[in-house]
C-alpha cells in the first residue's frame, strides 16, 4: 500500500539482528510506525533498548535485517550505500550527542559541508546567516577544539539545518551538555525547526525534552512498548 503523502517516514516490520560467533542478538524486533511530515517525535527508552539503532535505520545509516524503511517515499533497503548517502544529503539532517564536527574544518566550513557535497555554489552567506542564528557569527573561523561543548553543538545545529532537510534526526542532543546550555540548545533546535518546518526525530533519555515533542515512541528490549500522542494543541 502506498503510504499517505503526509508520512515522511514509514517503518514496517523492521528488525535488526546482530550475529556474533554464531550467537544472534536481536536489537530491534518487528518495529512498526509512521511519522507525519512536520511533526516532532521523541524516541525514548532505557540504555540498550535500541534507540540509536532505530535512529540509524530511519536515517539510512544502516540496513535493517528485515522489514522496510521508507523515507520521503524512498525505500532505503533497496538502495546502495551511495544512493542512501544521496538521500541523506538531500532530505536528512543530523545532530549527535558528541557533536561530531569535523575537527579539521572551521565552524563556518563545517556548516557549509552538506551544501558543498551537493555541489552548490555561493553558500557562504547562507552558512554565515545560520551561524548568526545560533549566535556564533563571530566564531566562524574557529576550529571545533577552540569552541566549548555548547558552542560546538550550536555549530552542529547550524550544520544540520544548512541543507534545509526534510527530516532532522537528533541523537541525545543534550547528552553532553550542562542543564543551562541544554536549555539554550533545545530552544534553538525547536525554534529553527519551527521556522524551517522540518520533521524532527529526537532520541533521548530526557523525558522533559521528550515532553516538548508531539509524540513519544517508547522502546524497551527492542520493541515499541508505547506510542503516545503528546500533542500540546
Amino acid at each position: 500500500m502506498i503510504p499517505p503523502v503526509e508520512h515522511i517516514l514509514n517503518i514496517r516490520n523492521v528488525s535488526k539482528i546482530y550475529e556474533n560467533a554464531g550467537h544472534k542478538l536481536t536489537v530491534l524486533d518487528q518495529i512498526n510506525f509512521s511519522i507525519q511530515r512536520g511533526t516532532t517525535v521523541a524516541i525514548t527508552g532505557p540504555s540498550g533498548s535500541g534507540k540509536t539503532t532505530l535512529l540509524g535505520l530511519c536515517a539510512g545509516l544502516d540496513r535493517s535485517s528485515s522489514g522496510t524503511v521508507s523515507l520521503n517515499q524512498v525505500d532505503l533497503d533497496e538502495l546502495t550505500e551511495d544512493e542512501r548517502a544521496a538521500v541523506r544529503n538531500r532530505y536528512v539532517g543530523f545532530i549527535f550527542q558528541n557533536f561530531q564536527l569535523l575537527p579539521t574544518l572551521t565552524a563556518l566550513e563545517n556548516v557549509m559541508v552538506p551544501l558543498e557535497l551537493r555541489g552548490e555554489k555561493n553558500i557562504k552567506k547562507h552558512a554565515l546567516d545560520l551561524l548568526d542564528k545560533v549566535g556564533l557569527a563571530d566564531r566562524s573561523g574557529h576550529y571545533p577544539v577552540q569552541l566549548s561543548g555548547g558552542e560546538q553543538q550550536r555549530v552542529s545545529l547550524a550544520r544540520a539545518f544548512s541543507n534545509q532537510p526534510a527530516i532532522l534526526f537528533a541523537d541525545e542532543p543534550t547528552g553532553n551538555l550542562d542543564a543551562e546550555t541544554s536549555d539554550k540548545v533545545i530552544k534553538l533546535l525547536f525554534d529553527l525547526n519551527k521556522e524551517a518546518g522540518t520533521t524532527l526525530v529526537i532520541v533521548t533519555h530526557d523525558l522533559d525534552l521528550a515532553a516538548k515533542t508531539n509524540r513519544m515512541i517508547k522502546l524497551k528490549g527492542g520493541v515499541v512498548v508505547a506510542d503516545l500522542d503528546l500533542n500540546h494543541g
Partner: peptide
C-alpha cells in the same frame, strides 16, 4: 583515526563513495 572519522561524518552527511 582522524581521517576515518572525517570520512564517516562526510558519509553521514551524504558524501558519495567517489567523493
Amino acid at each position: 583515526g582522524q581521517r576515518l572519522k572525517e570520512s564517516v561524518l562526510l558519509r553521514t552527511m551524504g558524501a558519495s563513495r567517489k567523493q
